[in-house]
Design a protein around this nucleic acid. Structure first.
Length: 309
RNA sequence: GGACGGGUGGGUGAGUGGCUAAAACCAGCAGACUGUAAAUCUGCCGCUCCUUGCGGGCUACGGAGGUUCGAAUCCUCCCCCGUCCA
């Protein structure tokens, strides 16, 4: 293991300019960009997920984009496996890996690893979900309390999704999630990680989000959505639940809805950005930079941090 | 001009004499989150004071008066908005 390998991580909320900064750094530092984004792994969903168009990549290789079809399941574990492989490959060709992270869980899965827990079981989840619907959400909480008291105390009774996961781990592995988690995780070794966080002023960020939604539509977002539907991609598929796609999915056939959809997308995106900030704020060892990634001053600042790191 | 219906906290909107700073939802803010994570969930959310408590004070349900021990809730007048009749 070569401990001198570096990994630059650029994290921040949506629309903070992570991609622009990554490309700028990659150009100057001979790097390649890897996305850490749960939505960009899906093919055909391009504009709304914020994939940088080929023409704007300035010759820089981009990875971990377009990995699966819309009807495929993709998880944090899958991401971790794919990302570690790509990371190795990039370092093997002596390039600097630059990660643009918007999905906090995926970043943590890569850097800190995941517990050695079983993957998902859709039949089990289906059964549990049915019971939850029939007996109320507290029902699952009671079940978990019996199986894994500690996890139950940390998960809200109404949080069906997390309750199901905890029960799933206990049933499939025979061990409580709390115990598995305590045993530790397989963290990424052999890299010096330099984290750069983009923290624009809240008002400016919200403004930019609003403008970006409009500009995405200008780039043909709605046309893309129509194309997806015409292509026969089921509206029930996961990427159609992504921010914006869920609102735009219903617009064709009733164009009057577009204005309302735009407002909803802008609002939902602001809320998402806020959640990202909550997650990233507690991330350790981040060099925070106040501003947007396409700001020259920010780029210079980031270059300095990387050089120091 | 006449007849009804309505004006409630940032928004929608419940509430028809005390249990109401006022349901619920939304927005907003803060937070949690180890395999759905652009997901899911939690707390706060009129102002203010302190000895931070199921604490005190103040302001609040279009406006002004009134009835009442007590009013968002009842009465009177006025101002707006909507529908209908002329």
């Amino acid at each position: 293991m070569n401990a001198h390998r570096r990994l630059v991580v650029i994290l921040g909320p949506t629309a903070s300019g992570k991609s622009a900064l990554a490309i700028a750094l990659a150009e100057r530092l001979d790097g390649e960009v890897l996305a850490c984004d749960s939505t960009q792994v899906y093919r055909h969903f391009d504009i709304g997920t914020g994939k940088v168009p080929l023409a704007d990549r300035r010759g820089i290789s981009h990875h971990l984009i377009d990995l699966v079809e819309p009807d495929e399941v993709f998880t944090a574990g899958d991401y971790r496996r794919r990302a570690t492989d790509i990371l190795e490959a990039i370092c093997a060709r002596r390039k600097l890996p630059i990660l643009t992270a918007g999905t906090g869980l995926y970043l943590r899965a890569l850097l800190e690893g995941l517990a050695d827990a079983p993957g998902r079981s859709d039949e089990l989840r289906e059964r549990l979900r049915e019971r939850s619907v029939r007996h109320g959400p507290e029902h699952l909480h009671r079940i978990l309390k019996r199986l894994d008291r500690e996890s139950a105390s940390r998960i809200a009774a109404a949080d069906t999704q997390k309750l199901i996961r905890a029960i799933e781990i206990r049933v499939l592995s025979g061990e409580p999630a709390s115990a598995l988690h305590q045993r530790g995780r397989e963290r990424l070794e052999g890299y010096r990680v330099i984290k750069i966080g983009l923290m624009p002023a809240r008002a400016a960020l919200y403004e930019r989000i609003e403008r970006r939604v409009i500009s995405m539509l200008g780039f043909g977002w709605l046309t893309e959505v129509k194309g997806l539907i015409n292509k026969g991609i089921a509206p029930s598929v996961k990427p159609f639940d992504f921010l914006g796609y869920s609102q735009l999915r219903d617009v064709p056939g009733d164009e009057m809805k577009l204005d309302e959809a735009v407002k909803q997308i802008q609002q939902a995106t602001r809320q998402y950005a806020k959640r990202q900030l909550t997650w990233f704020r507690k991330e350790a060892d981040v060099h925070w930079i106040e501003g947007f990634g396409d700001d020259l001053r920010v780029v210079e600042d980031a270059l300095r941090r990387v050089a120091e790191g």
